[in-house]
Design a protein around this nucleic acid. Structure first.
Lengths: 301, 301
DNA sequence: CACCCTTATGCTACAACTGAGCAAAACCCC
DNA sequence: GGGGTTTTGCTCAGTTGTAGCATAAGGGTG
């Protein structure tokens, strides 16, 4: 019983803020996530991922966290079962080396509910309801899932359910990577760029983890430049969470947690009152278990 | 660049409540966690883990969640790098098949702060301070870590920092599995049973995850029998979290979340007023994103 | 059976936090 | 100088969290 030999592949969701938009590092066309095999020289999986990403981007990663490992039989590949260990990394843009930054909402456009939810209400919802009604046996179960994951019929939209939403679209045959057999006769697909293999699914996993994480750990700052205004920080959080937050309460939250300190300088030229510049107090990472950035949600949607 | 061939091993932290004590399934002596290789017949990693555990325990797992994957070079083993994918599973005791249930606090006794913290204050803390002072260069850094992870000098004890605490004890040479070179000349070890290999570390990872999880998902119920009193539920949560909670507030929390419903029966014979029996409302898992069991902490310690 | 001990359950007071909105301050542009 | 924009300070009500008092309902004992 000595076990099957497998080859291990590292897969990285590398996130940075490019021109204020949360973006993910991709290579090639169709876009794929940076990846590389585990080599004998690599000390650990994390070290291997760091090595691959730094080689491909020329930048060092501030933050790197393991996401998930899978080795399903039905994934493509022959000659040994492929095993993928995925990671989530945060960095600042710089030059992406080969490859390029792509707005992650170009892959998952329905996840951006900051200003406009027409894509959800006018396009996706009706097609999902169609799918709900397509199976009389499963109907009740399907309806519940749609309601909860997409926050329809009275439920609240929950930003962290990224993966569940993607899986629902996958199962309902609304994304091109769904098995042909699941696709309805004349069901139109949902907007959003496709990625190679199951990489869009991995991206959804990363986004879900990141949205959950900013709520209880101060990781946003890994994406910010050394000095920033509170508005820029808020924009960043809003971009990640895909929803708007209440400005004054956001400031209160950040300040009372002592997450930042003033640099003394101000940032002018935005057409309004100049904003004070702040820097992240890196010490808080050590001081105590800080609460991260629980979003003061703005309930109006 | 075809990647190194590795063998994948599944490692499971299986938790159940045995006589009211949170216990973990172990095999052999020194105790090790149930494990098994990934075989070609296994559909997925999760399916492989289920298969192994169910074969070894004769019971089916209610809940199974991936913990972490590692493939460090320095782990023992030759002939291909060993890669371990660890899982956390919850179940009810029944017959453990081969193997046996062991109170998890026998491996990590300092994590149980429900009634007595003398182990921490009288035994562990002094030895840690000794370690802090042993390196003049690192002293400040070491002091901070000890203060935060063990909640000393004014900081609060944080139940979820299980892994960080174990790592600190490991680094400070206070557990037998620490490299010999780290062990102080005459430093005495800290109480707690050893496990095979790095399994105690994996156990700590599982405990940390479980403690974090009960705060935001109703997973405790996987460990309870079908009908239970609120006191039994509270005991379970306290045992997992390793700390006492405020009874009245705990009940209010559970009730107002509609997590349970009365069975109509009562449980007498405890020497006091008989308690009503409840059952878990499994439907809530589907209804909405329920908040789990945020512990109404009792601050007095 | 009267009394005490134990456990279960109900309820209230108070502190802390959250969501929401008003308003003034400080810049830009015309 | 006036209107628009962004930043910042502050209030206020509703909710949630912490803590403790009090009563209910059993068992055991003299």
């Amino acid at each position: 019983m000595s076990g099957q030999a497998v080859t291990a592949e590292l897969l990285a969701v590398i996130v940075a803020l490019v021109d204020g938009r949360p973006s993910v590092l991709t290579l090639g066309e169709p876009p794929r996530l940076p990846s590389g095999p585990l080599l004998p020289s690599h000390r650990s999986l994390q070290a291997a991922t760091r090595a691959w990403v730094e080689e491909q981007t020329g930048r060092s990663l501030g933050y790197l966290e393991q996401l998930y490992t899978f080795a399903d039989l039905d994934r493509e590949g022959d000659g040994g079962r492929p095993m993928s260990v995925s990671y989530l990394g945060l960095t600042t843009p710089g030059s992406p080396g080969i490859g390029g930054w792509r707005d992650w909402y170009s892959f998952l456009p329905w996840e951006d509910t900051r200003t406009d939810t027409r894509l959800l209400t006018d396009v996706i919802a009706p097609r999902l309801w169609q799918w709900v009604d397509a199976d009389t046996g499963e109907r009740a179960e399907r309806r519940r899932r749609v309601q909860i994951t997409f926050g329809l019929s009275g439920e609240t939209w929950q930003p962290e359910l990224v993966l569940q939403r993607y899986e629902l679209l996958y199962e309902s045959g609304l994304v091109p990577e769904s098995p042909d057999s699941w696709r309805g006769a004349d069901a139109e697909l949902v907007p959003g760029d496709r990625m190679a293999g199951d990489h869009r699914r991995v991206l959804a996993t990363g986004l879900a983890r990141l949205r959950a994480k900013i709520g209880y750990r101060p990781v946003v700052f890994e994406l910010m430049s050394p000095a920033f205004t509170l508005r820029q920080l808020q924009d960043c959080v809003e971009a990640l969470a895909g929803r708007a937050v209440h400005t004054q309460n956001f400031r209160r939250l950040i300040e009372q947690q002592d997450l930042v300190e003033e640099t003394g300088e101000v940032h002018a030229g935005t057409g309004g009152r100049p904003a004070r510049l702040y820097r992240f107090r890196r010490q808080v990472l050590h001081e105590r278990h800080v609460a991260g950035t629980t979003l003061p949600t703005t309930r109006s949607r």
